[in-house]
């Protein structure tokens, strides 16, 4: 089954993709895919890794690696900003019904 986070980070699943049980094979070596442009992934401590094939990327993403945490935080804060504004506008609208104005204008 396709994982949307994997698609976002690693790209579309190859047609011939078969999920392998890499974790149980300690001697597994990821082979570089010359057609695959390297992707940088991060863990929660902001450790970085470059992955050079879809299989490697999928493996890391499934294991919890992904976007840089600070990037996620920034994106969340930007969304929060809009959320706060919309809530503020809503509250202001409700209070305006009972003659309230933020700046006492």
């Amino acid at each position: 089954m396709e994982n949307q986070t994997v698609v976002d980070l690693c790209g579309d699943y190859p047609d011939d993709f078969i999920k392998q049980d890499i974790a149980s094979n300690p001697n597994f070596v990821f082979e570089n895919d010359s057609n695959y442009s390297a992707v940088e992934l991060y863990d929660k401590d902001e450790n970085a890794v470059f992955v050079n094939s879809f299989i490697e990327c999928e493996h890391y993403v499934s294991g919890g690696w992904g976007y840089k945490p600070s990037v996620i935080l920034e994106s969340n804060l930007q969304t929060l900003l809009v959320g706060v504004i919309l809530v503020f506008v809503f509250i202001k609208f409700i209070y305006s019904r009972i003659n309230f104005s933020f700046f006492r204008n």
Binding site: Q78, T79, V82, I85, V89, N105
Partner: peptide, 21 residues
């Protein structure tokens, strides 16, 4: 751009609300 639009509209609305008085 949607995010920027919301922020600008918010600032502008407060400003014009105060200004019209």
């Amino acid at each position: 751009y949607f995010l920027l639009f919301i922020i600008l509209a918010f600032v502008l609305n407060n400003l014009i609300d105060v200004l019209l008085n």
